[in-house]
């Protein structure tokens, strides 16, 4: 079995001194897409911020390539190989496309790879990022994570406000990132799109993991997803796969 690139054990994360995430343990394998699902307010973004160092950890450990990173500053986590694509297309708007890439480029990062994945960015390399379309800005943010030569990339709701065609294109790119051996952790509002490219899924409800298992168990099962998101009657033991750990909180 491949050692996980990212391993969380008993992680609790605070937001404004209130504990939002409770006792989350999960692994992300290199070359695979790990999907995190949940309703609005379940704590998905807080979990990502906790991993990246933007929200304070209350408990637990985070290991990147076997080394603990939970005490490192966010920039040191990035140096250790953690890329983070935040929600809401966080480009540096006054910098050009190329400058956005240059500020996060590490020694091994290659702008050519980004331009190969997103040729439209190469055409607009001298344009200020604030003048790009929404889809192009999201491409740029993905590209910016890629030039830091990451081992793990966290992607938070990259489809927000984008046309379905653009979302499908970006999902394809996420698959390509995994194909390069990067461990991708993906939060996505379009659950089925994410489950299509994912290998393993975790569902969060009220800051706790209520499901961990292979993506195919949830793919197309809207009712089960709904129950996992919002609670409801417990599932019959027969429907629960032996490899999946599932618990109902209420």
């Amino acid at each position: 079995m491949t050692a996980p690139a990212l391993a969380l054990a008993g992680v609790g994360v605070d937001r404004a001194e209130v504990q939002i995430i409770h006792d989350v343990s999960l692994d992300a394998a290199p070359g695979a897409v790990t999907v995190i699902l949940g309703a609005n307010g379940a704590g998905k973004t807080t979990l990502m911020d906790g991993i990246a160092g933007l929200a304070p950890l209350r408990s637990g450990t985070i290991r990147l390539d076997g080394k603990p990173i939970e005490k490192l500053a966010p920039y040191k986590r990035a140096w250790a190989g953690l890329g983070y694509v935040e929600q809401a297309r966080t480009t540096f708007r006054t910098l050009t496309v190329e400058q956005n890439l240059l500020v996060s480029q590490s020694g091994d990062g290659d702008l050519g790879t980004v331009y190969r994945l997103f040729p439209e960015l190469e055409k607009r390399r001298g344009l200020q990022a604030g003048h790009l379309s929404g889809g192009e800005q999201q491409m740029l943010v993905l590209g910016r994570a890629l030039v830091s030569a990451p081992k793990v990339v966290l992607i938070d709701e990259m489809s927000l406000g984008l046309a379905p065609l653009v979302v499908r294109r970006l999902m394809g790119t996420v698959g390509e990132l995994a194909g390069m051996g990067i461990a991708v952790v993906l939060i996505e509002q379009f659950a089925n799109l994410a489950l299509d490219i994912g290998t393993h899924a975790h569902v969060l409800r009220k800051g706790r993991v209520v499901f961990s298992g292979p993506c195919e168990e949830l793919r197309g099962d809207e009712q089960r997803l709904h129950r996992l998101y919002f609670g409801g009657p417990p599932l019959s033991a027969a429907k629960t796969d032996a490899g999946a750990a599932e618990s109902e909180l209420e």
């Binding site: 160092g53 933007l54 500053a73 966010p74 910098l95 240059l102 590490s106 910016r144």
Partner: peptide, 25 residues
Amino acid sequence: TRLGLKLQALSERPGTAEVVGIPAP
């Protein structure tokens, strides 16, 4: 300069600057 670009990035989005590896402090 690369340093200047990092300073600009830091002034625009301090949190994002840190997660892309800019040593903000």
